[in-house]
Design a protein around this nucleic acid. Sequence first.
DNA 1: CAACTTATTTGATAAATGTCAAAGGAAAAA
DNA 2: TTTTTCCTTTGACATTTATCAAATAAGTTG
Lengths: 209, 209
Amino acid sequence: MHCFDAWVSYFYYIWVMATTIQKTSFFESISPFVKLSPESRQALLSLMRKESLPKGHVLVPCGEICRNVYYIEKGLARTFYLRDGKEVTERFKAENSFTCSMSGHVTNTPDGRQIELLEQSVIWSLPYTELEKLYDRFHEIERLGRYLITQEMIELHQRLSEIQFISAHERYNTLLTSNPSLLQRVPLGLISSYLGITQETLSRIRAKI
Amino acid sequence: MHCFDAWVSYFYYIWVMATTIQKTSFFESISPFVKLSPESRQALLSLMRKESLPKGHVLVPCGEICRNVYYIEKGLARTFYLRDGKEVTERFKAENSFTCSMSGHVTNTPDGRQIELLEQSVIWSLPYTELEKLYDRFHEIERLGRYLITQEMIELHQRLSEIQFISAHERYNTLLTSNPSLLQRVPLGLISSYLGITQETLSRIRAKI
DNA sequence: CAACTTATTTGATAAATGTCAAAGGAAAAA
DNA sequence: TTTTTCCTTTGACATTTATCAAATAAGTTG
């Protein structure tokens, strides 16, 4: 019986440690800009649901509206849509970042974007509707939202400039320097669609270097 | 003397009317989402500087950091940067919209983006530093900021999808349906760089239709 | 291991786009 | 009006990229 108690407390200790680490990961990734009060933190955490999900899991299926903000504690997510029957990859998001597709929520109509996991991942979900209530209650959470969207916007400007008027070869080289690990984690077919070129062209570019 | 007074009051009336209309224009363009209290409105207005500026005026010159948010009451602005000695147009913004280049302000280093006016324009400027003070003072202005950036982000996603994996011909057609008036207001050389194609290609595309 | 699926490369060819040079046009200035 | 400048089109050609088809490589499952 003592032995059993020891095991229970051991596993409880592990669980507490794990939870603490996870919480830290989430708040550390946002803390450089926004410091949250304990109340805000508690309110946020109480609404976020953490799940461990397998590779291939679909967060937002075809035709549905994305109703959550996702924080990726671990793993890799891909947002894509269909055009002329082909998948176009809009972006990849890896650990310690957020992903979502807001336009569907804002207009309340499906925007055609799907989100899937490319690796086994640990994902925190927070429904937009709940987030909006938090925006009302906590000025500092509204600030957090503004901050995160600003970051996203700056990233998007960057991404646009890496595609507009840029040759396939240069696009690949830019990715190679800015995010080399992505090439180890993602099949080349998805990379090519992210770069806006065909898989064959990407293959030839890689061969030529 | 009576006659003079009459003229003075007449012009004062015109001036008040004009000012009112201008204020209305600004708040109406943001009101669909965010309703501001009189205090917030007053605080915002007191920090915004209105100017009538000629065609060709440079809001943000080469190498400088954009330190203001600009509201375009009338006219047309263009954000662009240099690559390989050529100007690349990032975006056009017309009346009743906002423009700025935030990444320079966030990182406090020039991001290479310039903003110029393509038409005689009426521009309201608000320094970021002042705006940030307003964010602190008024939750609802922070919300306004979040809202405007969200809109910008959705626009950017849209724009990205209109370039990624899209042929020159399709890009032109998309612009033709989504913003036909732009083609009447902007030289084709700037349009082509906005679409990420050469001017010659654009000319041939237009000839072929 | 064999069979099967998925991912990647390669080849041949066509289509799209860029480059360089020059000619028209249109608008602004003298 | 004439000149000048800027904007747009056109031509010839080179380069890049897509398309279609097939082969090879890699990873999975029975």
